[in-house]
Design a protein around this nucleic acid. Structure first.
Lengths: 120, 120
DNA sequence: TGAACATATGAACAAGTATTCATATATTAT
DNA sequence: ATAATATATGAATACTTGTTCATATGTTCA
């Protein structure tokens, strides 16, 4: 009952070759999948989410965010770097201070959709 | 220049007390934030995303998913448990096999929105 | 220039995580 | 009951990650 297409990962054999073949074609590119997981990874931390919600309410400098979340400036700065790499926030320099804000409305939409999911 | 409301987290002092106060009131509950981060954490892994995309295309048993993703049954099973705890997938037992599927259309919507974000 | 200060960053450490391996559980068929 | 097999799970391990601490960078003001 073994045919050439079945991978031998499962102890014995693949059960539904037809399903696997059909789904395999629909699967998005593996690179896209990694990119997407990076986005969600960036969202998957309470501190970063709190920062994003704060920035959704107002543009803020690093020191203000530290004060608001009652965390060290260093911790916030590290997290902002991650958020920026994930293109979730952008920054604007004004004198000594750096003001952060959400990079676009799309980010707010993503977060709000997540919240709706949790509310069920 | 120190007033009672300013936390001393920043090296010296809070810059914009008014902003902080206003944003503080708008911040969602800290528990909700943790719940939401758990959701995103569950989405923040390439393997789990691939599983979710596969299940978006068709209900599948564990063995089929292992074959499709070319990973061990054990690894898939562990990840399915995490996805189930996050209420992203549901399962249905049929004889020896367990079939998994997305728990609702909302999950598919979340993933597709994420993909759209990556596509910019 | 030098002091003060807002932010960024590298190293270190503790805590969390994905996979593997071995094995347990549960179902079906003989 | 026993064998076969689909899935689940606990322990171990390698890897990742969030925070802290110390310090560097860059800006303003005297």
């Amino acid at each position: 009952m073994i045919d050439g297409t079945s991978e031998d990962r499962c102890s014995i054999n693949v059960i539904h070759d037809d399903v696997i073949e059909r789904v395999a074609e629909l699967m998005p590119d593996s690179d896209k999948m990694s990119d997407l997981s990076l986005l969600y990874k960036a969202l998957g931390d309470p501190t970063r989410l709190r920062i994003l919600f704060a920035l959704d309410a107002a543009e803020m400098c690093v020191c203000d965010i530290s004060a608001l979340l009652e965390m060290t400036q260093s911790a916030i700065s590290h997290q902002l770097r991650i958020l920026k790499q994930a293109r979730l926030v952008k920054s604007r320099k004004e004198g000594k201070m750096v003001f952060y804000s959400l990079s676009d409305l799309h980010v707010a939409a993503i977060i709000e959709q997540g919240l709706r999911h949790v509310h069920e």
